[in-house]
């Protein structure tokens, strides 16, 4: 797994660029990650990212879009507006969390 310099700090990532150590993340780094993928961040965006971080803590698993809706209160349609294209992946990338897992 590579280590790259992001925002002047050495950060462990996987081959796709997702953080592999969630503890290396802070909001300043999150802002830098959003910048890297060209994602503008407003307070609405940060609320989603903070929900994901808070939810990950005890579960050690990134919330799916369904969980972000039913537990976090963010309707899926709104997530697609905030993070256009592939919200689940963009959100987890900016939050410094693994992308929601698939299978096989």
């Amino acid at each position: 797994m590579p280590t790259t310099r992001i925002n002047g700090r050495p950060i462990d990532v996987n081959d796709e660029g997702f953080l592999t150590v969630p503890e290396q993340w802070d909001e300043e780094l999150g802002a830098a990650l959003a910048d890297l993928v060209g994602q503008p961040m407003t307070e609405d965006h940060w609320q989603v990212i903070r929900f994901l971080r808070n939810d990950f803590g005890p579960r050690q698993e990134t919330a799916t879009l369904r969980r972000t809706m039913t537990v976090g209160g963010f309707p899926t349609r709104e997530l697609f507006e905030l993070f256009p294209g592939k919200p689940a992946k963009k959100m987890s990338y900016i939050a410094g969390l693994p992308k929601p897992k698939g299978c096989v």
């Binding site: 790259t4 310099r5 462990d12 796709e16 890297l36």
Partner: peptide
């Protein structure tokens, strides 16, 4: 990261 500073890539990997 605790990685050896010599191995740190300067260009980030952007998904």
């Amino acid at each position: 990261s605790k990685a050896d500073p010599a191995t740190v890539l300067d260009t980030p990997i952007i998904p």
